[in-house]
């Protein structure tokens, strides 16, 4: 699929392989004319992107192509030089969103118990204590989390800490969730476990999710759509559908659909790497 074909497909409002999309055909997030330079290096040059509602989009691409920069700009952590990013036509400040950092150790507040970490964004929203507690309890029940939240983050394993980070992002009931390589600081066993946790969370909440990953298997396994970026200035190299029904499991990894999609993504990735 070429960029042009994809863009016209999105622009034409045709949902990208989405059973639920009929009710919500309009894209959730629209990025138009995004331009970003760091010094002389041009990272994005008039970049356009649509993110459909209720989908999990994985972002994958060569090193230094600006995967993280993209979600950092969309989430307002880095200002763009030019361009417009709208969420249902609204600017970022008008919506609720969650952001999960790669470095959970530095993203959580070690002076707060885990439960207070999760409550913190609700405190910023000035919700009363009882309401905050109730919301956290509801989230815990909803996700089926079985960790002692009265412990401090530094008393927990890496995976548990990242789960706390994700819960802190989810507690405000965000319209969109951003995750920047959330599992890359974890060991393999924990990564596999956390993938399942994230899939469960996504199935439970259906929140539009943008996941930056440096692991192609993970990117495809979790995604409804894999966004493959080219080297800078980054363009959409491909925007690949992966519609194997959820819940996916280990068997998914050896199914024909998965293997073919991953192989296709890898081919596109290598084509882009060689170009660089």
């Amino acid at each position: 699929m070429t960029d042009g074909a994809l863009l016209s497909q999105v622009a034409g409002g045709v949902p990208i392989g989405a059973p639920l999309a009929a009710a919500t055909a309009a894209p959730h997030v629209t990025v138009r004319g995004l331009t970003k330079r760091f010094g002389k290096a041009s990272i994005y040059e008039r970049f356009d992107l649509d993110i459909p509602r209720g989908k999990l989009v994985s972002v994958f691409g060569p090193n230094g192509c600006g995967k993280s920069t993209l979600i950092n700009i969309i989430a307002g952590l880095i200002p763009p030089d030019a361009g417009e990013i709208l969420f249902d036509g609204k600017p970022l400040r008008a919506i609720k969103f969650g952001y999960v950092f790669q470095n959970y150790r530095e993203a959580l507040f070690p002076w707060l118990r885990s439960v207070d970490n999760i409550e913190y964004p609700l405190k910023l929203l000035k919700l009363p204590k009882a309401e905050r507690r109730a919301r956290v309890e509801r989230l815990v029940a909803h996700l089926g989390v079985k960790i002692d939240l009265n412990r401090y983050p530094y008393e927990m394993s890496g995976g548990q800490q990242q789960l706390i980070s994700i819960m802190r992002a989810l507690v405000v009931e965000p319209e969109i969730l951003f995750l920047d390589e959330p599992f890359s600081a974890l060991d393999y066993e924990m990564t596999l476990f956390m993938r399942e946790q994230l899939q469960r969370i996504f199935i439970e909440t259906g929140t539009t999710t943008v996941l930056v990953s440096h692991d192609l298997e993970e990117a495809v396994y979790l995604a409804d759509l894999v966004l493959l970026l080219s080297r800078g200035p980054a363009q959409i190299a491909d925007y690949v559908d992966f519609d194997t029904p959820r819940p996916r499991n280990d068997a998914t990894l050896s199914e024909k659909g998965f293997v073919a999609t991953k192989a296709h993504c890898l081919a596109v990735f290598q084509r882009e790497v060689r170009k660089g």
């Binding site: 989430a75 307002g76 952590l77 952001y99 950092f101 470095n103 530095e106 993203a107 959580l108 507040f109 913190y120 964004p121 910023l124 929203l125 802190r168 405000v172």
Partner: peptide, 18 residues
């Protein structure tokens, strides 16, 4: 102060004073 921690607070909507 860890930059990530400051960003985390900012991204959750904390004002400069907060």
């Amino acid at each position: 102060a860890r930059k990530t921690r400051l960003l985390a607070a900012k991204v959750m909507g904390a004002s400069r004073l907060r």
